[in-house]
Every structure is written in C-alpha cells, then in structure tokens.
Design a protein around this nucleic acid. Structure first.
Lengths: 191, 191
DNA sequence: TGTATCCTTTGACCTATGTCAAAAAGTAAA
DNA sequence: TTTACTTTTTGACATAGGTCAAAGGATACA
C-alpha cells in the first residue's frame, strides 16, 4: 500500500496537507535481514512499510531472541517507546524480506504535529489503534493455551505464518519452536 | 491528584484552555465494588481517578474473572477500545475502593479534540504512554516466570499489592492465586 | 460475641509445555 | 549434484505451575 493512501485512510487530510506531509518522508530500499535499529540506540525514525515485513525483537540474558512484534506492509513500524520517549531502544528492528519503506525523523514528525491539527489527530488515532492491537495480544498471552495463542496470531497476522520462520513466530507467542511445531502437526492431521 | 494538575502535567495548556476543558468533566463519587461499565455496553466515558483504584476485567467462558488492568489515582481509566472505537466493551470496569472520579463523554472529548490542537496532543501523548505501559506488561507475560512477572507488577503498580486482593493480582499476571500465594511465601521466608 | 462470608494458604497430585539431543527436511551456494 | 547450512520435526524426559480440596485467617454485620 502506498503512503498517501494509507495516510488518507486514517484521517481526511486535504491535498495540500498530504503533499507536504509525504514530502517529509524518505523512501528507502532495505534488504532481507537488514537491521534498522539496534538495542541501545535511540530510534530516530518512524517507518511506513510499503512492501515487506519486519519484526522487533530483544535478546534475553542467555542470548535468546524474543520476537516482540511483526510489522507488515501497509503499516507503521518503529521502536515505539524509544521513538516517542527518545530513550534507548530495548529492541532491534529487522526487516525479514527485501522491503520498500518510507521513513520520517522525529524532528520532522514533531514539526508536522505542530503544523497540522489533522496530523496530531493522525498520531492519536495511530497510537490508539496500536494500543488495541497490543491489548489483543496481551489477552492471548495472559490466560490462553499455546494452541489458543497460535489461533490468535493467525487472526492478527493472517499471512505471516507463511512469510517468516517458525522460530520467530514461536517466540512472538511466548512458546518454544518445538511446541509450535507440534501444534502445527496436530492441525494438519485433522485437516 | 487533581484533574487540572494532571492535564497541565501532560501538555502545557493555557489557563483558558484548561478552564474550558475541566468544565466538561463531571465529578462522581462511586463506591467500592461499583461497576462503571459492563461487558457488551459501549463505554461512553473516559474517567480520571482523583482518588481510589479500579480495574478492568473480563469473564472467561467458564465464568472466571481475568483482571486486565489496574487504574490508580492520578491516571485515566476507560475501556479503551470500546471508548475509542465505539464498539461493545469486552471488559467490565469496576472500582475497588470508594473513589472520586471525573468523567467526560466521547462527544465532549471529540469536541475538545477538534477545538484545541493542544487537546489532540494530550490524547496522543496519553495513548502513547499507555501503549508503552501495555508493552511492558506484554514483555513480562511473554517469556518470564511467575516470579519475574510478579516483580514486574511491583514496579508497575508499587502499592497495588496492599490495596487489592491477591486473586485480582494473580489473574492480572496470568497465574492462579495459589501460585501467587506461594511466591509471596517464599519472598517472606527470605527477608 | 457469634455467625456467615470472603480471602489466603497449604498439600497432594497432574499436565502442558519446556529442555536437550538428534534426525530429517529444506535451501542456497559452488 | 554435492556440500554446507539453516530450519523444522521428533522423541525422551523434566518441571513450573495448574487443579482440586480442605483448612486457616480476616472481616463484617446482626
């Protein structure tokens, strides 16, 4: 999905607003496995994914990677807390496919927030939407079995399971890859 | 904490803005165990808690109550998704102490969002803050032991453990009350 | 001051899921 | 097509935390 269509879909920007806003984004092509932000860095940009998939993850003390979120095309990607509170990121941001993304810096975004009331609204709507998505995941993790959590993820990210490796999905769901593998085996038996 | 101090702390409103905004809230006194919103209702108000504590919870199919979030004095309380997307709430909102709260309807809030750019900013900042808090909980639930989850909660809600019953905290943390009780026993042995 | 109600703790036992290790399958590169 | 590497599956076993049941403690109220 195209950036201005995405923007327009959230808030009814005027053509002039839209043009100005889009002009502050920069197009970037990034390759599979490229890392946009590392742990400890302050995430200075917000990304819109035109094409591709990314994830955020962090490292446990034992070095294990825990996937925190998947970001798919047509959505915003960032290390949210780091970007908005300007604190060091606890996450890595990594692209999992060759991707086309649009980035905007915090300074430019703040400028747009100040310039356009509509842009502020866009920011508000975006974060409430993200909030409800995160809360959905929270519900899945709080009191559901491994299989129910997997079902939640199929709803939230319908096509992700064919695009990224099983280990990433397993850690996203708070389970081991062995467990996820066994869940899938049982599913395929039934069908 | 007082409502206008709270507002001013988040965004630098002018005195006139502040006065107008505060005038659209209504003060309510509610008793312990009173339910503000039930499952299936559309949550029509956003609340500011001046004094007291509340929680949101939902019912599992077997009737078990799962606490989703605690709301303490000096913070905003609502059934977020229901309020912002105007969909039926999957949560109950309940006060756990005799409380003093200020409420504002969705219509009035929308009007204030439209009237004041600063108010829109307030909404945005509030939801990004909430977002980071929810993400913190998510991290705790995703790959931590019961004891680590309990430690997370002591940080997030330092005094809640003395104010609400153990069963509520246990379900908030995605564990049974027996497990939480045993964790506390071990803690007290050590000290 | 007794009685009912609710909340917390404890014990015995069970199960879902984790851990570890190895085999199998898939993918890429030479 | 062979070799090397990565990802997924499988099996055997271990364990954190769940379940169920009962006993204690608190709290309220009549």
């Amino acid at each position: 999905m195209n950036l201005s269509i995405f923007l327009k879909q959230v808030v009814d920007f005027s053509s002039e607003e839209l043009e100005d806003i889009v002009s502050h984004f920069e197009k970037e092509s990034v390759q599979k496995n490229e890392i946009l932000v590392r742990e400890g860095q302050i995430c200075s940009k917000l990304y819109f994914i035109e094409k591709g998939v990314g994830r955020s993850y962090y490292l446990k003390e034992d070095g294990m990677e825990i996937t925190q979120w998947f970001f798919i095309d047509g959505k915003i990607m960032s290390s949210i807390e780091s970007f908005f509170q300007q604190v060091p990121s606890i996450y890595y941001l990594e692209m999992l496919e060759d991707s086309v993304i649009y980035s905007i810096t915090r300074e430019r975004l703040d400028m747009l927030f100040a310039r356009y009331h509509n842009m502020e609204k866009f920011g508000r709507l975006l974060s409430t939407e993200m909030l409800t998505r995160v809360v959905n995941k929270l519900n899945a993790l709080q009191f559901q079995t491994a299989r129910e959590r997997y079902e939640y993820m199929l709803k939230e990210f319908p096509d992700i399971s064919t695009r990224v490796s099983l280990g990433f999905i397993a850690s996203y769901l708070g389970m081991t890859q062995e467990t996820l593998s066994r869940i899938r085996r049982n599913d395929s038996k039934k069908s």
